[in-house]
Computed example of a mutant assay.
Amino acid sequence: MKVSIRKKEIIKVASQLFKDKGYNAVSMRDIALALGIKAASLYNHIEGKQEILSILVLDLAKEFTNGMEKIVSSSSSPIQKIEQLIEMHIDITVTKSEALAALNNDWMHLQGNDLNSFIEMRDEYEENFRNIIKEGIANNKIKNHHPEVILFSMLSTLRTLYLWNQKRGKLEVNVLKRDMIAVLLKGII
């Protein structure tokens, strides 16, 4: 879907407001005020908050899905695939933290087909990640811990990275990648 420049501006401003206040606390009037226009003018470019949220969440979910598909279809080892997934999460966190906040915190406000599409993409992503972990365990490249515990540990860290990174002063990307990969894959002992 081609998005106009004005629509992109509206989405960018709304995503920051969603991140700061949460989806439910933001009104179309708030978005218009932040843009310096009348609320009625917004409707010339966007149907409403639901459309904004759908664009933010589904576009980012598609980016994660496409990245996962490339990684899964590669001939890389399970460890290399996990490294690539961590790097992808970091890249997205650094470049799209507002959309990531909407994806993590506000996805449940999606409706109808958009909600179903998101849940399907999320479930497929997690299943692919789980299968990579299981393959690593089967090949004795990953310690034989429960795959669900490993998946939860990695995804909970990666999904909340945008909060930590923002709060702690945004580490340099290459340092973040190197050290997160080392800690998530090798632990601290």
Score class of each variant (00 low, 15 high):
L60R: 03
E69H: 09
S73N: 11
S73G: 02
Q84V: 05
V57Y: 06
I55E: 05
M68L: 12
P78L: 09
Q50Y: 01
I86L: 09
T95H: 14
Q84S: 14
K70F: 08
E51A: 00
N44F: 07
I71D: 02
I82E: 07
Q50H: 05
Q80A: 14
K49P: 06
L53Q: 02
K62P: 00
E47F: 12
E63Y: 14
D59G: 04
M108D: 09
E51F: 04
E83N: 05
K96R: 13
S73P: 00
H45V: 02
T95E: 15
L42Q: 03
T95A: 15
I52Q: 06
I82D: 08
T93R: 02
A61N: 04
M68V: 13
T65V: 11
L100Y: 13
S77A: 05
K49H: 08
A61R: 01
E63P: 05
I82W: 12
I46W: 10
E83W: 02
L110N: 04
E83T: 03
S97E: 13
A99F: 14
S74H: 08
G48M: 06
N105D: 12
Q80T: 10
D106R: 02
E47Y: 12
I55M: 11
S54V: 00
L53A: 03
L103K: 01
A101K: 02
D106T: 04
V94A: 13
T93D: 13
D106Y: 08
K62Y: 11
E51I: 05
M88L: 15
E63L: 15
K62N: 14
S73L: 10
Y43P: 01
N66P: 03
E87K: 12
I82R: 08
S74P: 01
V57P: 01
E51G: 00
S77I: 08
I92M: 10
E98P: 05
I79D: 04
L60H: 05
K62E: 15
A102H: 01
L103E: 03
S75H: 13
E51V: 00
S73I: 01
H109D: 11
H109F: 15
K96W: 10
E98Q: 14
F64P: 00
I46D: 03
E98F: 15
E98R: 09
S73C: 02
I86E: 07
I92K: 03
T65P: 00
V94F: 15
L100G: 06
L53W: 10
H89Q: 01
K70R: 09
A102F: 06
H45C: 04
L85V: 12
E63R: 12
M108A: 09
L60I: 08
I90C: 08
